[in-house]
Design a protein around this nucleic acid. Structure first.
Lengths: 89, 89, 89, 89
DNA sequence: AACGTTGAAATAGTTC
DNA sequence: GAACTATTTCAACGTT
């Protein structure tokens, strides 16, 4: 095929089309996921909570604890929570 | 299976697991796409250009739809088309 | 000014331009907010936690409790948490 | 003020409150924009059309930038421009 | 007023 | 580690 300034049009086209095909499949899966959420919602489940569960299943326990701990520290710093005294530390 | 406060664990678990499976497949495709870019790059292609080309091709495709939609909106605004109701959608 | 099919161009232009001006100001504020986050980050604060605090200050306490409660119920339903026995309910 | 686990409550509170103030102003502008749309609608204008016009005007503005960017990318790819390094960015 | 749809904002991940 | 892209999330809007 064409070869312009050392660029093989044949190869380039092949790469572009492979990527486009893969992206189509990826989009189809995203639609499937959307459908499952919709079905769950139709059966009375709260999808926001479901998303939270999926997120937590991805993270390991230590990460979650660390995030919660830091949130508490910040809240205490601005008085949204009472300060701990040494006996509780 | 368990039924906690009116929430069916069986159904919920099924939804969660279906979504997790679909997300795995989706991630695999994302990895494939990355591989194609890497291969192209290894063969001397500029991936920034490739991404531009992909963007343009997507835009060209969607611009036709957009143009048709726009035309409809305008026609409807000046009474060349009837207002939408569910039967026409 | 022009009047096409009963549409006053003068009024329309005025509305469009008022909206564009307001959107510019809105964008400027969004940039300011971004800057404050950047500054906080530069001084060692964790912006994700800060966003969480802002979110919680918007919600009232009852909403937060409700969301946490529902999350627990769902987790129990799929066995991510042990079930409560009556004595703890 | 308080200093909890190395987190300065004074600074944190200041950041939080600055952001909350900016977000209030931002929200006020969003309300203003909504009012203009409502007023236009009350005077017989089609807000869908107005939104389309605003979108087009935004697009036209950004398309020039996009075109310039695209030109640069292409020139760089065929060596008509030097590669970027931090001094040129 | 709930629903899905759409557009904007934020987060996460990738690349250089 | 800084910038860019991509994905996810959030909020608004019209619609039913």
């Amino acid at each position: 095929m064409t070869n312009v300034n050392g660029v093989s049009g044949e190869y380039l086209r092949s790469y572009i089309e492979r990527i486009e095909r893969l992206e189509e499949e990826k989009k189809a899966l995203a639609d499937d996921i959307r459908d499952v959420f919709a079905e769950a919602k139709g059966n009375g489940f709260d999808t926001a909570i479901m998303r939270e569960i999926l997120k937590q299943r991805k993270k390991d326990a230590s990460e979650l604890e660390e995030a919660e701990y830091l949130l508490d520290v910040y809240k205490r710093a601005i008085g949204m929570l009472p300060e701990l005294d040494e006996e509780n530390v």
